[in-house]
């Protein structure tokens, strides 16, 4: 299915989505440039605030979209490359987030400080708790962060301790059991799934905005 034909809640997104999105990004770029070249100075005081991962990714995407349009206008990137960059940014951000939120929390120092270890039992528990529909995504994110050998340990523990079947002991066995040809196919399809989920999330938000606008217009009449 072409990417601009994703159906959300049984409704097809308007065909002019890409055109509208490009216009929106040009406007974002214009505003970003204006605000970056003008205005006041600020002070770095070390003050911090917490925001949700979803909000962080949304903000990153706005900045990236505005910035990429600028790069595109001066001829660095083609629209196809921009699309790929946005996709890579979504997946790359999730991998980094997973590293900070999950992997680092399950990494410890060896007693004599000669190295570190991953708590693969706890990582297996996290995968189990995420539910079967999220196994692929979690295992993909673990694999991207700690490599195949340690992911094998997570999978072995997931199936032995939490699922109690012992069906899979390695990543390769896992991907075959899920119907993938090999690890590469698992990686590519899971990446696509992550990107599609993000797109659906964005489109859902867009439709909700349209509905809100439509509701407020009809109330105003």
């Amino acid at each position: 299915m072409p990417r601009n034909e994703i159906i959300v809640d049984g409704r097809k997104l308007p065909a002019k989505y890409n055109e509208e999105e490009q216009q929106k990004n040009r406007e974002r770029n214009r505003r970003l440039k204006e605000q970056s070249l003008q205005g006041s100075t600020g002070k770095r005081t070390g003050k911090t605030k917490k925001i949700s991962r979803k909000s962080y990714i949304a903000r990153l995407k706005v900045l990236l979209a505005a910035g990429l349009i600028s790069s595109y206008l001066i001829g660095y990137f083609t629209p196809q490359v921009i699309e790929k960059f946005q996709d890579d940014a979504i997946v790359g951000t999730l991998i980094k987030e997973y590293q900070a939120d999950i992997i680092e929390q399950n990494t410890g120092r060896i007693d004599d400080n000669s190295g570190y270890f991953y708590d693969t039992s706890n990582l297996a528990a996290i995968v189990a708790e995420a539910g079967e529909e999220n196994y692929d995504k979690n295992i993909f994110l673990i694999y991207c962060n700690i490599g195949e050998e340690k992911t094998n340990e997570v999978i072995e523990k997931l199936y032995r301790i939490y699922l109690k079947t012992g069906e899979c002991k390695t990543l390769e066995e896992y991907v075959h059991s899920k119907g993938y040809k090999d690890i590469d196919e698992f990686i590519n399809k899971t990446k696509q799934r992550i990107i599609s989920e993000k797109e659906i999330e964005d489109l859902q938000a867009m439709l909700n905005n349209e509905e809100e606008k439509s509701n407020s217009n009809s109330k105003g009449k």
Partner: peptide, 16 residues
Amino acid sequence: MEKELEVIEIDNKEYC
């Protein structure tokens, strides 16, 4: 899951 970000005040608005 949350992210802790640095905040800077510019023109009386908080930016992360």
